[in-house]
């Protein structure tokens, strides 16, 4: 029963997909095909990420992370978070488990948000591709605008949310 509850959205969406296939085969088969491609991509991408996260969890002591990206890590911690996010590969959804590990090891939330921001918009492989498609002017302008915006979004997110919300994130990370 527990497993049914955990997978209720997966089940509901799968049923919806099946119904769409019966009602509108062209649309349904297209949706199923796209889901299948994405599923394969996800199942190929996630194992090494979770493997690395498992190893980091065991090998990197909390103290090290606190020193590198914790509350008092200052600008250096922010730069490290930014570089980590920029060096990443893969869609944004893969950033969240990594961010979760950073939180578990008590990196500061501002650095975690900078990391997510960088992963979403300044990934180097993606930037190179953007440049070849949209030109240097467009891509470089967007990148340079995005860097301060990432920091701004990170600090505003923390200003708007309450201390309680933030503490809860750390508790959540520890219990998961």
């Amino acid at each position: 029963m527990d497993i049914l509850k955990r997978y209720k959205y997966v089940l509901a969406l799968s049923i919806l997909l099946l119904i769409s296939y019966i009602v509108k085969p062209e649309f349904g088969s297209n949706a199923i095909g796209l889901t299948w491609i994405n599923l394969k991509q996800m199942l190929f991408l996630l194992p090494p990420i979770f493997l690395i996260l498992g190893l980091l969890d065991v090998w990197v002591p909390k103290e090290t992370m606190i020193k590198l990206m914790g509350k008092d890590s200052g600008v250096q911690g922010g730069i490290l978070a930014f570089l980590m996010g920029s060096a990443a590969a893969g869609p944004l959804y893969a950033a969240f488990p990594v961010a979760h590990m950073l939180i578990k090891k008590e990196a500061s939330l501002i650095n975690v948000f900078v990391f997510i921001g960088a992963w979403s918009t300044t990934k180097i492989p993606m930037f190179l591709f953007e440049m070849s498609a949209l030109g240097v002017g467009f891509s470089l302008s967007r990148l340079l605008l995005n860097i301060p915006i990432i920091v701004l979004i990170a600090s505003l997110s923390l200003k708007i949310s309450s201390k309680q919300d933030q503490i809860e994130i750390y508790n959540k990370a520890k219990s998961m």
């Binding site: 997909l17 996630l46 979770f50 690395i52």
Partner: peptide, 22 residues
Amino acid sequence: KGYKSFINILPEFLTIILLIGM
């Protein structure tokens, strides 16, 4: 640990994969 955290979050991952497809 890696395996457990993967299994733990798998329902959410599958949910978004289905949403993306649709």
